[in-house]
């Protein structure tokens, strides 16, 4: 069952398209990795799919109500300013803002939800730590917890394992796999690390030369990771 459908979509910046004529479907409950060479437009596609950049042509259909079913979003962690004096719990609580209208304050329900999300990613003990003092891997898991606090049916992640060590990468992938398998959450992530996808991802969106296409994880790994475009046609 389709959750997000792109129909002949063009995306780009300042009227210059980066991707053109993209038609893809993201199914409900899928775990899909966005792959492709550096600068191919993976992040552009992801940002377009969550509404961070306008669609230049074509259309994106969401088979859910964006206003009542927020998307869980995990940005690249470098985009967040460490100057903000925030505890880990305060950052996770921001996820609950998705369903809180203006003038409604964070209450006991939101605090409990945020604490549970932190526990899910294994960082419940760090709730009162300074967010800026966390390691790269911990930061990513906190941002996943924040995305979960929005109670989404789709979570999108922009390079969640970039710049973190192998152990932290495994922990992040374990969290995402559990979310997908046990909770039925649809996962879409941008990554460069193809090996970690085995057993987790069910499909890939390959982005290259201004185009994007859907394929199997096995096709990419068999083609030698990101060294060349895999042949999805065979």
């Amino acid at each position: 069952m389709c959750l997000v459908r792109l129909r002949d979509v063009s995306l780009g910046y300042e009227n210059r398209p980066v991707l053109e004529h993209v038609s893809l479907e993201l199914g409900r409950g899928e775990f899909v990795a966005l792959l492709g060479p550096n600068g191919a437009g993976k992040t552009t596609l992801l940002r377009g799919m969550v509404g961070l950049i306008p669609v230049m042509a074509g259309a994106i259909d969401y088979e859910f109500e964006r206003a009542t079913d927020p998307i869980g979003y995990v940005p690249q962690r470098e985009t967040l300013d460490p100057a903000f004096p925030l505890t880990v719990l305060e950052v996770v609580l921001m996820g609950t803002y998705a369903r809180l209208p203006a003038l409604r304050r964070v209450g006991a329900r939101q605090r409990l939800l945020a604490a549970r999300c932190l526990d899910f990613v294994g960082l419940g003990a760090l709730a009162e730590q300074r967010f800026a003092a966390l390691s790269g891997g911990q930061t990513q898991r906190v941002l996943i917890a924040r995305a979960l606090a929005a109670e989404p049916i789709l979570i999108v992640l922009d390079e969640p394992t970039a710049g973190v060590d192998a152990e932290a990468t495994a922990a992040i992938m374990d969290v995402l796999s559990r979310l997908n398998r046990e909770n039925g959450l649809t996962v879409l992530l941008v990554t460069h690390q193809v090996r970690m996808l085995s057993g987790a991802a069910s499909a890939v969106f390959w982005v290259q030369d201004g185009r994007a296409m859907r394929g199997r994880v096995e096709d990419v790994t068999a083609a030698g990771a990101l060294l060349g475009a895999p042949d999805f046609r065979r």
């Binding site: 967040l80 921001m94 803002y97 964070v106």
Partner: peptide, 22 residues
Amino acid sequence: LAFQKEFLLVSFDHDLAVVFGK
């Protein structure tokens, strides 16, 4: 004070606020 959470969200993570439809 009334809109503290909205001001914090757009200041700390503008993209997340957009994704949330704020």
